[in-house]
Lab assay of single mutants.
Amino acid sequence: EVTIKANLIFANGSTQTAEFKGTFEKATSEAYAYADTLKKDNGEYTVDVADKGYTLNAKFAG
Rank of each mutant, 00 (worst) to 15 (best):
A58D: 05
E1Q: 13
E25C: 13
K52L: 13
T17E: 09
K26N: 12
K52Q: 14
N7C: 13
Y54D: 04
V47G: 02
A11T: 08
G13N: 06
A61Q: 14
A11I: 09
A11L: 07
T17I: 12
G62M: 07
E44L: 10
T17M: 10
E25I: 10
G62F: 07
Y54N: 06
N12G: 07
D36T: 05
A27L: 00
D36V: 04
E30N: 10
G62S: 08
L8I: 13
G43T: 01
G43E: 04
K21E: 06
A61Y: 13
K59C: 13
K39M: 11
K40A: 13
D48T: 15
Y54S: 05
A61L: 14
G22P: 00
E1H: 12
K52N: 15
A50Q: 14
Y34D: 00
S14H: 13
D51F: 03
S29D: 10
K21G: 05
A18Q: 12
G62L: 07
N7I: 14
A27E: 01
N7R: 06
A33W: 08
E44Y: 09
F24E: 02
K21S: 10
T17C: 13
G62H: 07
V2Q: 05
D36W: 00
A6V: 15
F60K: 00
S14F: 13
F20W: 05
I4R: 00
E1K: 09
G53L: 00
A58H: 08
V2T: 06
V47K: 02
T3A: 05
T23L: 08
N7P: 01
T17N: 07
D41Q: 11
N57F: 11
T37K: 13
S29N: 13
Y45I: 03
A18Y: 14
G62R: 04
V49P: 05
L8Y: 15
E19R: 07
V49E: 07
D36K: 04
E1W: 14
T28V: 12
G62A: 07
G13D: 04
E25W: 09
N42Q: 12
K21H: 14
V47D: 02
V2H: 06
T55G: 03
A58C: 15
Y45N: 00
N42W: 15
A35Y: 15
A58Q: 05
D41T: 12
T28P: 01
E44I: 09
V2R: 03
K5N: 06
F60G: 02
K39P: 03
T17W: 09
A61T: 13
S14Q: 14
A33V: 06
K59I: 15
G53I: 01
F60I: 01
T37Y: 12
T55P: 01
D36Y: 03
F20L: 00
K26I: 11
Q16P: 00
K5G: 03
F20D: 01
E30Q: 12
K26G: 11
D51Y: 02
E19A: 09
T28N: 05
V47W: 08
V49T: 09
A27N: 02
E25H: 09
N7F: 13
T3P: 03
D41G: 09
A33L: 09
Y54P: 02
F24Q: 05
E19H: 12
F10S: 03
E1A: 10
T37R: 12
L8W: 11
A50T: 14
S14G: 09
D51L: 01
K5C: 11
S14Y: 13
I4C: 04
A33R: 10
V2D: 03
E30K: 09
A58E: 05
F20V: 02
K39C: 09
A6Q: 05
E25N: 09
N12Q: 05
K59S: 13
T37S: 15
I4M: 02
A27I: 03
E44T: 10
E19V: 14
S14D: 13
F20E: 02
